[in-house]
Nucleic acid binder design. Structure first.
Length: 850
RNA sequence: GCCGGAGUGAUGAAAUUGGUAUACAUAGCAGACUCAAAAUCUGCCGUCCGUCAAGGGCAUGGGGGUUCGAGUCCCCCCUCCGGCACCA
């Protein structure tokens, strides 16, 4: 230890030592310790670490260290989400091989991570772009294909013209590409899908298992995304035909108010019945018009277009009352939700109302608001006022009127009974629909895992046999970015033989969405070199589900939904025995910085010029100080505003602690505990602070309140400074109190500033290092933490008026008497009647006077 | 519109879950050391009244309520952030 704090020197020393000792290796199947799986979202190897990464990994690292010091067997791994488009863009722009670009980036970022000193088990490092990994992506695909979870279909999908590939619904949320932010278009392409919709109900149901462990807003976002909606299907027969049109409604109770059936422009029934329509030409023209404007409507978040429609001339029959309803086509009915057809009830649906106003369709009221009067008075359905013109749809639940035999019922009851009736009569049934769509995983890109499928003219679609995996990406391709997968241009890749008949065949040239890679990577960490299975089940059962997952909120719906789905499929295949992959999730906030010349705090980015390079910060202040500041400046889930003065504060604090260790280092090793009676009041106070701090931080860690933990450490350090004892003159008991406080401080600093903590621990005379000695986390002694002398606030009528001194065991009546006798208190109670005295032992006294 | 989260000093934020509001830090101010500056150290730092003081009034987005006592619980309202949205 030098007299002065040189972070560079210390950090290099300990990083080297940890590496040599394999200090952070997680031990397989160690049943003597409780496993703890601490996971951070794996980074995309863009080339450089940014502050968001540093924050993410500092949080995870603090928790990992803490758990280790508490005696857990901690798995703390890292890897690379190394497939994806930037590598291909680099290839196109600069003529570099995507693999070289990716691996150079990984090498550079690995070096940066090591300089931050994150305690990873580097033996388990994985990278998605290696055949050893993506082979198992392909293996999973085959398993899903076998089970019908993976399937191919032609359908309109999201197409990003900038990225030249299709995207899943999740990746084009809000109508923009998740990666480049540009508007997406619809395109009819044959694509591979994963049947995530089969798991919609489970994805909702199983949230119960993780509630409390996951942030509420993430669960809400997923719930919104899945978009469950319970209602009923009702079939309307088309007059003079055999055809039936099925609608979905959540308000079957309003069906007597239906005055039209409205179809989406793409509704298949139109094509079917068009030939016989007198209005055929007009309808076709309208349909084309709707499609064209849908294509043009690229801007996300745009206001809904004006409703437009056309009467087809077809007549539908309301199965409840036999009424004839005109069939319209309109732009406000979406083909990809429900059945692509709705019953239009203008009186009770705002959209239908608007449409009816425009085209003068009748508005018929069939639900009445329940007033308090009506609740008590026998309701007379004939009394309902129909003549009054409505200004808005009435979309609340209420009482049915003008609804035949159903009149007089409450909406809630009618919804249930009418659906049952429809089912009995065979023209409908209860139904649940979801907003969630199947996960389209085909990407027309090179830098991804090839989909292991072969097309044979004789045998059709043939899965690649398991023994032939991996289907390797070729080393070179022509990166033209023309909208077709570059793989299609690689003859030696495309041309193959059919595994079934041996004849000439072609490979699928699309690759998999990179979110496939990240859906199961953390299982692979448990057994990263396995070449006969994605992982060994026993190992995975030991470590997973993940104890604590940490990452950005941006993946609330994409990655975190996919990985939940993937886990359920793995469970169904028999690979894991649980439903949910992650017990606890923490979503860390953004790291922002002032944009020069403005007052806006924005996420650090190159394009805004407000980025801060972690390497520069580490060079200037040391990794420990950077980490300490990042963890102290805000609660982990909040936005973190970068302030260089804040990081200077962190360094100042570390220097102060370091200085204390330096001054005391030779005095403490033989300072041992003496009899309690030898401790001065000040020494007892210091010991109290020490044990209170231990208790507080231990508690904070369970909830990841890392900022308050750091504050507590600063308080302890301040208390040590205020204690005032000097190494040369301190009495034995005082030296012991200092030793206890300082050693606790150093140990509890480890999760935040591991390098300097190790250095200080060594200087205090401990051999073997902190990580070398297991389970060193200090233990709080409740007895010593207890206050011996309290200041009890005394209130008069709830207002603080005085304080009295007391010991924790002062009985109630003594406290009461002392409070009443207090001089200041008497100034407020004199001449008034004491009505009541509330005494909360150890807390306060409140005197109520009149 | 629906769903979720949040509003506390100049700033980032604390508050043992109903019991002394503003811990810890940053910035600021004053002082010590210094030829000087930086660094370091000491003190002050919600707001108003009070000559300094002693002391008191008011303060946790606004209004009401429950309670001996409310930042915390209940009701109404406002604002901000996030998600979904012509979803039937």
């Amino acid at each position: 230890m030098d007299e002065k704090y040189f972070p560079e020197k210390i950090e290099e020393k300990w990083q080297k030592r940890w590496e040599e000792e394999g200090a952070f290796f997680a031990v397989e199947r160690d049943h003597s310790r409780t496993p703890f799986y601490c996971l951070e979202m794996l980074p995309y190897p863009s080339g450089f670490l940014h502050m968001g990464h540093v924050r993410n990994y500092s949080i995870g690292d603090a928790l990992s260290w803490y758990k280790r010091l508490r005696g857990f067997n901690v798995l703390h791994p890292i890897g690379w989400d190394s497939f994806g488009q930037p590598a291909e863009q680099a290839a196109i722009k600069r003529g570099i091989n995507p693999r070289d670009w990716t691996e150079d980036n990984i090498n550079h970022m690995r070096g940066q991570l090591k300089r931050v000193g994150v305690s990873y088990d580097w033996r388990r490092e994985m990278a998605a772009h290696t055949p050893e990994y993506y082979r198992w992506d392909q293996w999973f695909f085959l398993k899903m294909y076998e089970r019908g979870v993976a399937y191919k279909k032609l359908s309109p999908v999201n197409w990003c013209p900038t990225c030249q590939t299709t995207l899943s619904n999740e990746q084009s949320s809000g109508g923009v590409c998740w990666r480049c932010g540009n508007p997406v278009e619809k395109k009819e392409i044959e694509q591979w899908f994963l049947r995530i919709t089969d798991y919609a109900e489970q994805l909702l149901e199983d949230m119960r298992e993780i509630e409390g462990g996951w942030p509420e807003r993430v669960l809400t976002m997923q719930r919104n995304w899945i978009g469950r909606s319970a209602g009923a299907y009702v079939d309307f027969t088309i007059k003079d035909t055999e055809a039936r049109v099925r609608v979905f409604t959540t308000r079957i109770d309003t069906i007597y108010g239906a005055t039209a059936i409205v179809l989406a422009a793409e509704h298949p029934l139109l094509a079917e019945l068009l030939a016989d329509l007198p209005l055929k030409a007009d309808v076709l023209k309208f349909v084309e018009h709707v499609r064209a404007s849908a294509r043009n409507r690229t801007n996300a978040g745009e206001e809904a277009e004006e409703k437009e429609g056309i009467n087809t001339g077809l007549i539908a029959i309301n199965p409840f009352n036999g009424e004839f309803l005109p069939v319209w086509v309109a732009n406000y009915v979406l083909m990809d939700y429900g059945t692509g057809a709705v019953m239009s009830v203008p009186a009770h649906d705002e959209r239908d109302f608007e449409f009816a106003q425009k085209y003068s369709l009748p508005v018929r009221r069939v639900i009445e608001r329940i007033s308090h009067e009506q609740e008590s008075i026998e309701h007379d359905p004939t009394r309902a006022d129909q003549s009054a013109a409505m200004e808005h749809a009435f979309s609340d639940y209420g009482l049915l009127v003008n609804s035949g035999e159903w009149s007089g019922k409450l909406s809630e009851d009618a919804i249930e009974e009418m659906a049952r009736f429809a089912k009995d009569k065979n023209f409908g049934e209860e139904a649940v629909t979801y907003r969630l769509r199947d996960w389209g995983i085909s990407r027309q890109r090179f830098w991804g895992a090839p989909i292991p499928i072969i097309y044979c003219n004789e045998c059709g679609t043939v899965p690649v046999p398991e023994k032939d995996l991996p289907v390797r990406l070729p080393d070179h391709a022509d990166f033209t970015g023309t909208g077709e997968s570059p793989l299609a241009g690689v003859a030696e890749f495309v041309n193959t033989t059919c595994p079934k008949c041996g004849g000439a065949a072609r490979r699928e040239t699309d690759t998999m969405d990179t979110f496939v890679d990240s859906s199961w990577y953390f299982f692979r960490y448990c057994d990263p070199r396995n070449d006969s299975a994605p992982f060994d089940q026993e190992r995975v059962t030991y470590w997973t589900p993940v104890s604590q997952y940490i990452g950005g909120i941006d993946h609330a719906v994409m990655h975190l939904l996919y990985t939940r789905f993937w886990t359920k499929v793995m469970r169904d295949i028999g690979l894991v025995p649980f439903n949910e992959p992650v017990k606890r999730l923490m979503t860390q906030g953004m790291v922002t910085n002032l944009v020069e010349g403005t007052n806006d705090w924005k996420r650090m980015s190159k394009s805004l010029g407000n980025g801060v390079d972690p390497d520069d910060m580490i060079a200037a202040y040391g990794a420990d100080a950077v980490r300490l500041f990042v963890l102290f400046a805000a609660p982990p889930e909040n936005e973190l505003r970068w302030q260089e003065t804040g990081i200077e504060g962190a360094v100042r604090f570390l220097r102060r602690v370091y200085g204390m260790v330096w001054r005391w280092r030779e005095r403490l090793s033989d300072a041992s505990e003496t009899g309690a009676e030898e401790f001065s009041a000040a020494a007892r106070a210091l010991r109290r602070k020490t044990h209170q701090t231990i208790a507080r931080i231990t508690e904070d860690f369970e909830e990841l309140h890392l900022n308050t933990s750091v504050a507590a450490l600063m308080e302890l350090s301040n208390a040590l400074g205020d204690f005032g004892a000097e190494p040369q003159t301190a009495a034995g008991a005082d030296a012991f109190a200092v030793r206890e406080a300082l050693e606790s401080l150093v140990l509890m600093l480890t999760p935040f500033t591991p390098h300097v903590a190790e250095e200080m621990w060594e200087s205090l005379g401990h051999e073997g290092g902190i990580i070398g000695g297991a389970a060193l986390w200090p233990r709080a002694d409740e007895e010593l933490a207890r206050k011996e002398d309290l200041e009890i606030p005394v209130q008069v009528n709830g207002k603080l008026r005085s304080r009295i001194r007391a010991t924790p065991d002062t009985p109630e009546d003594v406290l009461r008497a002392a409070a009443l006798a207090d001089e200041k208190v008497q100034g407020f109670t004199n001449g008034r009647e004491v009505v009541k005295v509330i005494v909360v032992p150890q807390r306060l006294v409140n005197i109520v006077v009149r």
